[in-house]
Amino acid sequence: MAKEELIKKTINDETAVIATGKILDNNNAFEMVSAITELQEKNFKYIVIDMNNLEFISSAGVGSILGTVENSREDGGDIILCNLSQNVLHIFEVLDLVDFLTIKTSNEDVSKVCGVEIS
């Protein structure tokens, strides 16, 4: 399976967005972690993961986010998942992570968390 490319975008000094491809699984989990870690090292407080294009996320894909979220929270920030499809949201429900992770259904809700307009 070909690797899915991640697209990164900076909103301001504190907020950046990573847009996923169709699949986040073992093949690109490492890239997701690298992307998140890079932004955390650059002191981005809020990292928004736009899952608008995401059709499937595996356990490893979930783990790539779970393994990095505490770093952001320790610095007073967060990793925010947004624009999840029903299928993808269901996976987070199966893994019982909906209460733990910050999942927003719309850009508007994301903006409320990190205080900036996300388009």
Binding site: A29, S58, A60, V62, G63, L95, D96, L97
Partner: peptide, 28 residues
């Protein structure tokens, strides 16, 4: 997927990290 990764010419660090991510996601 892990088996697929291990079976291909493995980048050892990537593959073991992949296993760890799987543990993380699967067991919260």
């Amino acid at each position: 997927k892990l088996v697929g990764q291990f079976s291909a010419k493995p980048d050892i660090e990537n593959v073991l990290d992949s296993l760890l991510f799987t543990f993380s996601g699967q067991f919260a």
